[in-house]
């Protein structure tokens, strides 16, 4: 049985939650989840994604200006990711996470990216949450569009 104090508490929470939702509907991007998506929105979302793909493509191919812009040093040897992975081949984003033999641990794609930066490229490991990492992830996964998920596959 609900007593008065509990009832008031629920009421207060409901009020707060309602206010948040109302505010979001009125001012925030969350309104997109309540309204039919518009072509303009789709275009924006796609552009936001492709901008990261573009940045990742440049990083992946050793573009010095983009590396500087994002504050990363992915290689000190002249080596770029694409030299072993043309068109992001053999990166297999669709097979992660998995036990990665070269690292002898269960790894994500981001772990693998950092391993390649540190080992073959002799660069500086990047923050897994950094824009550079997200851009590399965006490019690699975009380039493998259509590949079927096979997580864990050797």
């Amino acid at each position: 049985m609900i007593n008065t104090s509990t009832f008031l508490c629920i009421l207060r929470r409901s009020t707060v939650a309602g206010a948040v939702i109302a505010a979001a509907v009125v001012v925030g991007p969350a309104s997109a989840n309540k309204d039919p998506v518009t072509p303009k929105q789709l275009k924006l979302y796609q552009e936001a994604f492709m901008e990261e793909v573009r940045k990742g493509d440049l990083l992946f191919h050793g573009d010095a200006a983009m590396a500087e812009q994002l504050g990363v040093k992915l290689s000190t040897t002249g080596w770029a990711c694409a030299m072993c992975h043309p068109m992001a081949s053999d990166t297999h984003p669709h097979a992660f996470p998995k036990f990665q033999q070269s690292m002898a641990k269960f790894a994500t794609l981001r772990d693998m990216i950092n391993w390649c930066i540190e080992k073959p490229n002799q660069g500086e490991k990047i923050d897994p949450e950094s824009e550079a990492m997200k851009a590399l992830e965006a490019y690699i996964t975009w380039s493998n569009t259509g590949s079927v998920l096979v997580p864990g596959k050797y």
Binding site: L58, H61, M87, T145, K153
Partner: peptide
């Protein structure tokens, strides 16, 4: 089959940033 670098099937796209 696992010894082959194509043991994980992949579908690839050509790059874009160098053509922009």
């Amino acid at each position: 089959p696992e010894d082959h670098d194509k043991s994980i099937p992949e579908v690839l796209r050509p790059r874009i940033a160098d053509n922009q």
